[in-house]
Amino acid sequence: MGTVALQLERSTSGVVAASASVVFNTVLFTSGNISYAPLTGIITINEPGRYVINWWAVTQAAIASAGPGFALSSSLGASIQSNSPNKIGPFSGAGVINITSTPATISLVNSTSGDITFSSLVHTKAGLTLFKDEPPGDLSDSSLCFSYAQLTHVIEQLITLYPASVMSVFTTNANVVTGTATSLYTSPNADGAGLFILTDSLGQSEAIPIAAICGIYTGEATVY
């Protein structure tokens, strides 16, 4: 688990205009070589690496006929978009962005052609977590590599045996990610899987680094 991490929250109502960044008014946690500008919604990363971002929002209205949509946008050209067919209610998204040069910026942007209004019915309107994906210790340590390989093997079995079971994955930064086990992701240059992909109740994907997993509850009516 990396030493760079950030958790943001938005509790203010209001509107985010087309192509504008979502402004989170509260920093719940920050660690490492990273900063956040609360007036603009811009996150600045000062350390190269692979970063995992999860976000969610509760909307009340969207001018775009297709419903609300947000995109994780970086100054290096990455744009990872998520959309919802429902103009009212919660939805979420996730992305992995590789930062090759610094400083680099990331923000959550309204990717539609119209305003998006946050819900006035809930206290917290939106949230975002970001952390650098780096395994603890030296991967040349064969015992560590074996542990990751064994965990990957267990997850492969869970995906096969319980594709419809709602699981809870506990991570080293005290987060709990809930959803059905979908797949394991292996980058083109890697020897083994690096991310465990869950699908949440809204149909959105949540990416969890293998190195960040400290426990998995496989759900009711499962035996493992």
Rank of each mutant, 00 (worst) to 15 (best):
S120C: 02
P135M: 02
L108S: 06
S65C: 03
S74N: 00
C145F: 14
V154Y: 14
G203Q: 10
L158A: 14
A174P: 00
L151F: 06
F70E: 09
L198Y: 09
L8M: 04
G32L: 10
W55G: 02
L130G: 06
A66P: 06
T178M: 08
G215H: 10
D141P: 09
S65R: 09
N110G: 02
S13F: 07
M167S: 02
L108G: 03
G192I: 03
L121V: 03
V177N: 05
A126Q: 05
A211H: 09
V169D: 06
S140H: 14
S120I: 06
A104S: 15
P188V: 08
I80W: 03
P163T: 11
F196P: 05
K87C: 07
A174K: 14
P85H: 00
T44M: 11
E220L: 14
S140Q: 11
A37H: 12
G49Y: 07
S120N: 12
G77T: 10
T218I: 01
T100M: 04
V109P: 01
S165T: 14
A62T: 14
I159V: 09
G93A: 09
L39N: 14
M167D: 00
F118S: 10
D200S: 01
A221I: 13
F131M: 10
I45T: 09
I43K: 00
E156R: 12
